[in-house]
């Protein structure tokens, strides 16, 4: 079947959810790509855990790299006009205190109730929680960016997460290479499919039963 969107195009679709005036945190991995596709005419402030509010894109020009100015994924970044710094306890206060509009996170698994597992696989002794647990419970809206299924074709959207949880019932939206899905009290609503992908194909790689929206459409990028 059609493999759907590239990682970059998943990021493009997520960036379309952002509106002028929003404060947004982009997590490690695929979510970081979103910073390259922000709508240019709007003030969207990217928050980074180590105390940056208002970083711009990732710097490609090595001569401008500065170890004192990196995002939470360790990448050198620029600043936008209006950027500011704070210490890390304050930075996590912004997260935990409910001040962020959106947190985009990667995931190993998401359950039909919006439970998120993204810090440790079941077989691992150690793991990387990082800021994920704080972001998951603190942001007004959690969007998960991930591949729809594992490399082996196993669903990552499941009835119940088998990996240790990051937080329960927090994910509002899942954007994958195949689909745009909202987590609602009545279940998972399939709102959009990637070009050339059918609702049946998405369902075949999704463990819980999807509610196909009456207004199901192709993802606009």
């Amino acid at each position: 079947m059609n493999q759907g969107l590239s990682r970059e195009l998943i990021a493009v679709r997520i960036a379309r959810e952002f509106k002028d005036g929003m404060y947004v945190n982009l997590g490690f991995g695929m979510p970081t790509l979103v910073c390259s596709f922000l709508p240019p005419d709007q003030d969207i402030f990217l928050h980074s855990e180590q105390g940056i509010l208002g970083y711009g894109g990732i710097l490609m020009d090595e001569s401008k790299w500065d170890v004192d100015l990196i995002n939470a994924s360790g990448q050198p970044v620029s600043l936008v006009p209006g950027a500011c710094f704070c210490d890390l306890a304050t930075s996590f206060g912004m997260i935990r205190g409910g001040h962020l509009d959106v947190s985009v996170l990667g995931a190993y698994q998401v359950s039909e109730k919006g439970d998120l597992a993204n810090w440790k696989r079941g077989d691992q002794v150690v793991g990387g929680i990082g800021g994920a647990m704080d972001l998951a419970i603190g942001a007004k809206r959690v969007i998960v960016a991930m591949e729809h299924a594992t490399n082996k074709g196993e669903p990552k959207i499941v009835h119940q997460c088998s990996f240790p949880l990051t937080a329960g019932g927090v994910v509002k939206t899942i954007v994958t290479n195949l689909a745009f899905i909202d987590v609602t009290p009545s279940g998972l609503v399939l709102r959009e499919v990637a070009s050339g992908v059918t609702a049946e194909e998405v369902q075949a790689l999704t463990e819980p039963k999807l509610i196909v929206s009456n207004e199901l459409r192709e993802m606009e990028l």
Binding site: F92, D134, I137, A167, G168
Partner: peptide, 30 residues
């Protein structure tokens, strides 16, 4: 393994003379 925000706040609390605090972070997880 400690959630990062909890780690910072536990240390901040240690420095600021606060013995403990309640947080939503980590509820329902290991």
């Amino acid at each position: 393994a400690v959630p990062h925000g909890t780690l910072e706040e536990r240390i901040r609390a240690g420095g600021m003379g606060i013995a403990a605090f309640y947080t939503l972070t980590g509820v329902g997880t290991p």
